[in-house]
């Protein structure tokens, strides 16, 4: 059953959405977003930028994962209205990133039925890398 405004409640969690990230994911993202920044491509450049483990992933890709997780949850009948996040921790090579979200509010405004969520992207160690929020409109 697809999600809709009436069957969503404050406290609900959206389904987790995960990707293991390394050069295969980062290079594809670099290719479409023209994001060939040396510290995303090269370990030595990553270390020069202050990350001892070398190259690291794009914040923008984690943002895309949040958007993708929201789409996986609301499908093609909902609308993503707003997404915001802060990049707090580095996305290291081979991290398994999981987007999580919890409903914090629902209300009718702007002629839409909107659902508010707290969002994060956690790594395999449970580290919260990307706290944020989202607003979706649901039928």
């Amino acid at each position: 059953m697809s999600v809709n405004f009436d069957n969503v409640n404050v406290g609900d969690t959206m389904p987790k959405w995960s990707r293991k990230t390394s050069f295969a994911e980062w290079n594809r993202y670099a290719a479409v977003n023209e994001e060939f920044v040396p510290f995303h491509m090269d370990d030595e450049a990553g270390r020069r930028a202050g990350n001892e483990q070398g190259a690291f992933g794009m914040g923008n890709l984690r943002y895309a994962y949040i958007v993708n997780a929201l789409h996986a949850w609301i499908g093609d009948t909902g609308v993503v209205r707003e997404v915001g996040c802060q990049y707090r921790a580095i996305n290291q090579k081979d991290d398994v990133l999981t987007v999580i979200g919890e409903v914090t509010d629902k209300r009718t405004e702007g002629g839409e039925q909107r659902v508010y969520l707290d969002i994060n992207v956690v790594n395999q160690d449970g580290g919260a890398t990307c706290p944020g929020h989202a607003v979706v409109a649901l039928p």
Partner: peptide, 12 residues
């Protein structure tokens, strides 16, 4: 200077 992305909020 080195530049890094600190985060963003997008409204669609």
């Amino acid at each position: 200077l080195t530049g890094m992305n600190g985060g963003q909020t997008d409204t669609y």
